[in-house]
């Protein structure tokens, strides 16, 4: 369905809205047909709605949804369909009538279906069972923890940082005090283009020669990012760098609402400084090849690059106040 694009940033609501519209259209159509005496029997209506949802999820949504999630969605939608068709006694009786007719073999046609079902259903179940026992050459599923639980403290270049209370020393207002609200106001506009609020204003443009304080540190963080990080995390910080596809899984996509937007700045500082090798053992397997950047960058450089990541994506670090 290339004529109707899924629009980045609006996809979640678009999916729900499309499903709602389709089901509403179906309900209206069925209502009209019922008025004309040609309504779709509840049994088939239920199966049709369920099948439509599965087809929609498999073929409409891209990137493709993994099977485990489609299985969850399929089960929940099956429960929903059951609740609908058995919500009232009349609907339930209507729904089960074709099944009872087949079981009772009320006509030769129904008897034929019953015979076929009795043969086909066990065969299908046997087939599935046989298939599930066949040896597979696919890589096994890894239940990976995306957000590892951080330690209470982390040591970088001999200094111990308490993750719950530490603050980025460069996220400061013109008076030199830590001020997240001030820095939040100077991030890029969180949109597909991720544009600066006012490119001519040195308060918002890190590359303006007159940029000072927080926004100047963002520029310095950006320089460090493009010297060290963008090869994997990408020019647009979306995890699609030049080398990204050499790794499995590919590097984190910072523009996604589920990554740095969910985390405290100190958490990101810890992840960057310790890298994949410094992750705690209880969350194995980590599957992260990120180097421990404390071996290559200074503490100040790590803070600045973290700040740049938030600035560029338009997200704000999580706080607990």
């Amino acid at each position: 369905m290339t004529w109707l694009k899924l629009v980045e940033g609006y996809m979640p609501m678009q999916m729900i809205s499309e499903l709602a519209i389709c089901i509403l259209v179906f309900a209206l159509l069925n209502y009209t047909l019922k008025r004309a005496g040609m309504g779709i029997p509840t049994f088939w209506a239920g199966i049709l709605v369920w099948a439509f949802i599965q087809v929609y999820l498999k073929y409409r949504i891209y990137p493709p949804i993994p099977f485990s999630v489609r299985a969850i969605y399929g089960t929940v939608s099956a429960c929903g369909v059951f609740m609908w068709v058995s919500g009232s006694e009349a609907a339930w009786q209507e729904f089960r009538r074709p099944i009872i007719n087949v079981l009772d073999a009320v006509s030769p046609f129904h008897k034929a279906i019953r015979v076929v079902s009795l043969v086909v259903i066990p065969l299908l179940i046997g087939g599935f069972a046989y298939k599930s026992f066949l040896p597979s050459f696919e890589e096994p599923i890894e239940l990976r923890t995306v957000h590892p639980a951080p330690p209470a403290t982390t040591k970088v270049h001999g200094k111990t940082f308490v993750l719950q209370t530490s603050q980025n020393p460069y996220r400061v207002n013109p008076e030199g005090k830590y001020d997240q609200e001030f820095s939040n106001a100077a991030t890029v506009v969180q949109d597909m283009g991720r544009l600066m609020k006012d490119v001519k204003d040195p308060k918002y443009n890190p590359w303006d020669p007159n940029a000072e304080g927080y926004i100047k540190y963002v520029r310095e963080g950006g320089e460090i990012f493009f010297q060290n990080c963008h090869f994997c995390h990408g020019d647009n910080l979306n995890g699609r760098g030049l080398w990204a596809y050499a790794f499995n899984p590919i590097p984190a996509n910072f523009t996604d609402a589920g990554t740095i937007a969910q985390l405290q700045e100190t958490f990101v500082f810890w992840r960057v400084s310790q890298g994949g090798i410094g992750l705690p053992p209880e969350g194995f397997p980590w599957a992260s090849v990120m180097p421990p950047w404390k071996e290559h960058l200074t503490t100040d450089e790590i803070w600045k690059v973290v700040m740049f990541e938030y600035w560029h994506t338009g997200y704000y670090p999580r706080t607990w106040d």
Binding site: L6, P63, I65, V146, R240, A252
Partner: peptide, 11 residues
Amino acid sequence: MGGQQHPVLGN
């Protein structure tokens, strides 16, 4: 999927 984060499910 092209990465751990899905543009719909991630949200």
